[in-house]
Nucleic acid binder design. Structure first.
Lengths: 245, 245
DNA sequence: ATTTGCCATTTTGTCGATAAAACGGCCCGG
DNA sequence: CCGGGCCGTTTTATCGACAAAATGGCAAAT
């Protein structure tokens, strides 16, 4: 049950992680040590650098993230309701497990929630909304040629991918729905990382997104939702062999 | 903008708050000081004992809840993503504001989410599910004759009301959907408290729930969802005059 | 040989103390 | 008379230390 120490390279000390700003649990500034740790641990879990089931011992985390216990505990507490961390009362924290059941739940919720958000956006969105989608697609497409999960730019690609999907539904008009979709997206990305490590690239990500965006810009809600649901369903196929040994 | 100190009676020190157990952010034991203050602050906000906009100063909270700063900060951090508390970076915490816009967003999300959950439950639920609903309705009905928001049993009534609504959707099969509904319910209850203080009882709560349960037990999904949506919409009517001065 | 109970060690959860940041009042200048 | 900048006070965010709980190993008993 215990992990070999050196295998998974941890994010060492304070490297310039200022790139992916603009990601708080729900609004807030930025100069708060706790939010920095929060984001770094969360990213480490999502990107698979902290693998499922791993115990998160405070002393080790203090060393790895170069901070005190108080911000760490606050950060870990936040990650629990988001489903990334489990708490064993009086026995500390650990990275939550990944299961096919949870993924299926996520998938079903995502299709349902994002379909609603996308339809509303298509109905309400204006020219500026379209512009932001076009732009997001551009940067996403440009960043995607290289496609290695272990790559240093993997985090940046993930950020651009999320930006594109959030841009699509940005005009749905419901802050709560946007929050929900954002959280589901992040949680789902753990499984995407898993796949990217095991079975890299047997699908054309760029084409799938082109198809969605093209339907959205045509204001064809049915086609757009269909393309989106297909897009999400594809991960299921890739994931099944990995998670059922 | 600042509040007169003595007006709102605070929950003083450690009174026997052990009644409403079984309410963690998302699973967990119970013997953890932090979860206790979390639940107490949350309830105080939902029940209106901590009014919107009020600054939550650590020193005062330490005195009121009889605990140290560390569990308090963790508890407050948890209440932020749930929408009950706002954080002003380097300026501490305060109770979040209530707005008609947020309520409308909540209402729309709730109708949408619970409709799905209820339909799924009606499709999948068995006899034991029906039993738990009948039971929940019984206790809810019995507790409701007295109906004063300032009442000492108001917290217990709220608990029974939530138990009934959760029992209805319990068999939807999706943990994520249940979590969502639970959170939306709590957030909505803040507005219910507001109404109960201002305009007590110009509707027949028991009859409204009877109508929902009756349709559910008949397995009439359309009627059940209709009754549920009406039930939620009624609060909107009562709330509008209060929140638009 | 296996199980049971105890003790030392480790790790958590909580508490007081410190440094940094924001607030409020005052003085000064326009 | 009013606005802007400086300084003391208050409050926050973070750090190190303590006490309670859990883990693991050893010895004794079945």
């Amino acid at each position: 049950m215990m992990e070999p120490q050196g295998t998974t390279a941890m994010t060492q000390a304070f490297d310039g992680a200022a790139l992916d700003a603009g990601e708080r649990p729900s609004g807030g500034g930025g100069t708060l040590l706790m939010y920095d740790v929060y984001r770094r641990i969360r990213d480490d879990i999502i990107m698979g650098r902290l693998e499922a089931g791993r115990r998160l011992r405070i002393e080790k985390l203090k060393a790895d993230y170069g901070t005190g216990a108080s911000p760490l505990r606050e950060a870990l507490s936040l990650l629990i309701p988001e489903g990334f961390v489990d708490r064993l009362e009086h026995r500390g924290f650990r990275v939550s497990f990944v299961t096919l059941a949870e993924f299926d739940d996520l998938l079903s919720m995502r299709c349902w929630a994002e379909s609603r958000a996308l339809r509303a956006s298509i109905e309400r969105g204006g020219k500026d909304w379209e512009s932001r989608i076009v732009l997001a697609l551009h940067w996403f497409t440009q960043a995607f040629p290289d496609h290695d999960a272990r790559d240093a730019r993997a985090g940046e690609r993930r950020r651009l991918h999320k930006a594109l999907h959030m841009a699509l539904i940005a005009e749905c008009g419901s802050p709560l729905l946007l929050d929900l979709c954002s959280q589901l997206f992040d949680r789902n990305d753990r499984y995407r990382s898993l796949v990217n490590f095991a079975a890299p690239a047997d699908r054309d990500y760029v084409a799938e997104h082109d198809r969605i965006v093209e339907a959205v810009l045509r204001r064809d809600a049915e086609a757009a939702v269909g393309a989106l649901v297909d897009h999400y369903g594809n991960l299921r196929r890739q994931l099944e062999p990995i998670l059922t040994p």
